[in-house]
């Protein structure tokens, strides 16, 4: 029953010599919250701008609701709500007037304004000038603008960026309730894994314009490699011994060794091997790396072909 709402095929875009987005194939299922994760400059905003038709891809295409964005732009945009980077607001108008400016353009019902403002909890502040709004209120008004036309998919670019912890929590709570309450599919970008973990059912990891991983959170967890961390009296000898036996060994800080190994059996046999070789094992611990570490590792290295 799950169908694809948003799909990109080989999406590519360069600026000068820099390939900002490199052959991205996204697939977002209806009713999911898709977290588009990547460090600064990874190409998130560039991708999102292409999803909205704000810039044109050099290659590849964007499909929304099964139709090609380049040939059905207006009908598609009528079903999409978006908040790209900072919200687009007129400071000299009230929150309500800001909504009304866009409502007039869309020609939708006035009721939509009240509803959207209620969702983001700005009903009471609706008639204050946006100039007086806090950063959190501005962001929520931006979200209300995105919700105004009752979209089927919401595209949010770093929706919590720049907010204080309370603002971040509020914004996340708002986003989290959307799929259940209104059946909206959410595509959101973030540079924080923790945020994506909290909000998303699916993740796409982008780094230097390339997609490194795409799938459900559970699949990302399954990708984790368990490791055995060892404390040995002569680490270099131990590393040699283990490598000879076919284990993958990494040097850790304070002269610990980490070995790619699964389960207690591996742990026991590694220990036995080292002891047999006359080494003293004084520390041994099975470790499941956090997603944060995995993500950090993935995006710490340059991607082949990512930059010229």
């Amino acid at each position: 029953m799950n169908h694809t709402v948003l799909e990109t095929v080989g999406l590519t875009r360069s600026f000068g010599g820099l390939v900002a987005v490199n052959d991205i194939n996204l697939k977002v299922e209806a009713g999911s919250v898709f977290g588009f994760l990547g460090p600064n400059g990874a190409g998130k905003t560039t991708t999102i701008r292409m999803l909205l038709g704000l810039i044109k891809p050099d290659r590849g295409r964007v499909m929304l609701f099964g139709e090609d964005l380049s040939s059905h732009r207006l009908s598609i945009l009528g079903r999409v709500g978006a908040l790209v980077e900072t919200p687009s607001l007129y400071n000299h108008l009230t929150g309500f007037e800001n909504m009304e400016v866009t409502r007039r353009l869309l020609g939708c019902s006035k009721e939509n304004i009240g509803n959207a403002l209620e969702i983001v909890k700005l009903t009471d502040a609706a008639h204050r000038l946006v100039r007086e709004y806090s950063l959190g209120m501005r962001q929520r008004l931006g979200l209300a603008l995105a919700l105004l036309n009752r979209p089927e998919i919401l595209i949010l670019d770093e929706p919590t960026n720049g907010l204080d912890p309370a603002g971040i929590r509020e914004m996340r709570a708002l986003i989290k309730q959307l799929p259940d309450q209104s059946g909206i599919t959410v595509f959101l970008s973030s540079h924080l894994l923790s945020e994506v973990e909290q909000l998303a059912s699916h993740v796409g990891i982008i780094h230097q314009g390339k997609m490194l991983f795409q799938g459900s959170l559970a699949e990302l967890h399954a990708q984790q490699h368990e490791r055995l961390v060892l404390g040995v009296d002569r680490p270099s000898v131990a590393a040699e011994v283990l490598t000879k036996q076919g284990w993958r060994v990494h040097q850790e800080e304070n002269s610990r060794l980490a070995v790619d190994a699964h389960g207690q059996k591996d742990a026991a046999s590694i220990n036995a091997l080292l002891v047999r070789e006359g080494l003293e094992v004084f520390y041994l611990s099975q470790q499941q790396p956090t997603l944060e570490e995995t993500f950090f590792k993935m995006t710490a290295e340059p991607v082949a072909g990512g930059k010229p």
């Binding site: 701008r49 038709g53 704000l54 945009l77 980077e85 400071n91 869309l106």
Partner: peptide
């Protein structure tokens, strides 16, 4: 200037109007 300073072009041009 209202649009430039409010960063509104990206919002306006993403609306379903020509």
């Amino acid at each position: 200037g209202l649009e430039h300073s409010g960063q509104s072009w990206k919002h306006l041009f993403a609306q379903p109007v020509p």
